[in-house]
Computed example of a mutant assay.
Amino acid sequence: MKDLFSEHSELYQQARPDYSAEIMQAILQHAPERHLAWDCGAGSGQLTKWLSPYFQSVLATDISAAQLAQAPPLKNVTCRTAGAEHSGLPDRSADLVTAAQAIHWFDFEAFYAEVRRVLKPDGCLAVIGYGLIEAQDPQLNQLIQALYFQTLKGYWDTERRYIDELYQTIPFPFLEQAVPSLSLQYRWSAQQLLNYFSTWSGLKHYVKQHRQSPLAPLETYFAAQPIALYAIQFPVLLRVGKLKPSSR
């Protein structure tokens, strides 16, 4: 599993989109017991904080100690620096395993083996993510598309393709459960948007190679606009699975 987000972990915690009550309800209907949840690849706790009110205890793991240090302190949450294949949990102890905007970085086979080991027979795995940001303003959306598909072409890690393919091409050897179509909708300022783009792994690779930011066209656009807040949305990627009978 790659660690691309330890550097500037505070910005990541501040700039990345949050999750939602709708996402939680779509997941929780498949998790009848609420004793223990394992949030794998938890980063700075964007999903962990949503799990906390519903479970007696939550384990948040990530390979980045810097990211975990940015997670909000919650009394029923334990943070542990660990890879996706090493939760440290007992067999059949977890009611829910989650991976939010993270599974595309995992060794699928090793992670799924750990999921099968730690899940209770009626527990479930929820894989959550969000796709490419979409702006309501056509000109802004065109600039975002140009940044993503043209300027940063060749700078994205190969794993990013799983996001572009809406997580539909990841291996998923579980009994798939029905989930609704969801999106995350916000109104963000220009600075919020620029901060978010600065967390992109492809942009980080670009800056490392060229020693300059590729955000100048967006900065020029924002400087010429009187708009205080921009309507944006992210398509939600969500797959929920139960253990197959042979895995129980």
Rank of each mutant, 00 (worst) to 15 (best):
Q70V: 09
V115Y: 07
L68Y: 00
Q29T: 14
L218V: 09
Q225A: 12
A84C: 11
K242R: 15
Q56E: 14
S198G: 00
L125F: 08
A99C: 13
Q136P: 01
L218P: 10
E114P: 05
T158M: 10
T199P: 01
V127S: 11
W105R: 02
L243T: 04
Y206R: 07
R92S: 14
G154H: 10
V179E: 11
Q46C: 08
M24P: 04
D3M: 08
T151M: 04
Q29V: 15
L218Q: 09
L143T: 04
R239L: 06
Y155S: 10
T151G: 01
A94R: 02
E219K: 14
E85H: 13
Q46R: 14
Y206A: 03
T98F: 07
D18K: 14
Q142M: 06
I27Q: 08
E134Q: 15
L96N: 03
H30E: 05
Y19P: 02
F149G: 11
H35Y: 12
P32R: 05
A110P: 05
E33Y: 11
P73V: 13
M24L: 13
T81D: 03
A228H: 13
Q168Y: 10
L175I: 14
Q225G: 03
L132W: 00
F197E: 00
H86C: 12
E10P: 04
F111D: 01
Q225S: 15
S189W: 11
A102C: 10
R80W: 02
A37S: 02
Y19E: 01
R117C: 09
I103F: 12
S183D: 14
T81Y: 03
E134T: 15
A126R: 06
C40I: 10
Y167P: 11
L175E: 15
K244R: 15
E114Q: 12
Y54K: 02
P138K: 02
F106V: 06
R80S: 03
S198H: 01
K2Q: 15
S9D: 03
V58L: 08
G43S: 07
I103T: 09
A100E: 02
H210P: 00
L166Q: 15
L152K: 04
Y221A: 08
Q177F: 07
A190Q: 05
S201F: 05
E85K: 09
H104T: 08
R248Q: 15
S201A: 06
Q101L: 11
L143M: 08
V240F: 08
M1K: 00
K49P: 05
G202E: 03
D157C: 02
S64E: 02
S20V: 02
G129N: 03
F55M: 09
L147M: 09
V179R: 01
M24C: 08
I163G: 06
A66N: 13
T81R: 11
L237I: 05
L166Y: 14
V179S: 09
Q25T: 13
E219F: 05
D18M: 12
S9H: 05
I23Y: 02
I232Q: 04
Q136W: 03
F108T: 01
W188N: 10
S9Q: 06
L140E: 06
F5I: 06
L89G: 03
L36P: 09
F106Y: 01
Q192G: 03
Q70P: 01
L68F: 03
A99R: 06
M1S: 14
F108L: 11
A94S: 10
P17F: 08
L237E: 12
I232W: 07
G154W: 00
R161C: 12
D39G: 11
Y196T: 03
A102N: 06
E176A: 15
K49T: 12
L184R: 15
L152P: 12
A31K: 00
F108Q: 00
D39W: 05
